[in-house]
Amino acid sequence: MSKPLVTIDGVSFSYEGQQTPALKNITFDILEGEWLAIVGHNGSGKSTLAKLLNGLQFPQQGKIAVCGTELTEATVWEVRKNVGMVFQNPDNQFVGTTVRDDVAFGLENHGVPREIMVERVQTSLDKVQMGTFLNQEPHHLSGGQKQRVAIAGVIALQPAIIILDEATSMLDPRGRAEVIATVRELKDREHITVISITHDLEEAAKADRVIVMNKGELYREGTPEQIFEMDEELVQLGLDIPFPVKMSKLLRHKGVELTKTHLTEEELVTELWTSHSKM
């Protein structure tokens, strides 16, 4: 771990015809094997960042290098092999008429021989628990299922990095949980680096590292613990505080001693139990 896989160096970007830049002088590294959450309210520049990482847009200033290759018009197709992306709207990224065709789409684009395709389609779908839906049509799938198919389509190409661009924001709670669990499992088993762009702080709490974006700038960077110490500042930024963090704070306020701010309910309950049950 801890080898930088992606380096972003002084990147600025403005959309055509807009005065305020979408990104202002952004610099940070993405480490191999980490789960990085990029959070920020709608319009904070986080989605623009995702587009730059995949060469869907190019920075006007600064450099981005992915797996040692600088991202330019010339290297973009090479880089895209290493960076898979899952978008927000489950419907608008489903190209195939059936689940298996959709997963195969990326493989076809990269000219993968058919025998390998057949095998990869099956194994990738198995990995996201959609292996029994091969011939299903997209309009018969739930949002969460469609997003899992999209993930299968990405991992079929065996990328080093997977970017989730608000991939859970249009899903119901069940779909959201399915997708997050799937990604978690993939990250642990396949050692894929995950970049999740989100405004769901519960999702960010599960990451190894969090970057907070605000008005096109990198506002703060740290572990989830460090980020949630920001507390009211997060609310000011249009974000929220995860429930366990809120409860930790309230409990302290009511005179309950806690060693730290907890990010999960389990941790919180465990500390309450170990520190108080002995009395």
Binding site: W77, R80, F105, E108, N109, G111, R114, V121, V154
Partner: peptide, 16 residues
């Protein structure tokens, strides 16, 4: 989405 998944026209594509 298609571009991100490496679609760049029919050339060099295989068929599933």
């Amino acid at each position: 989405a298609m571009e991100a998944r490496g679609y760049k026209g029919g050339e060099g594509r295989t068929k599933y």
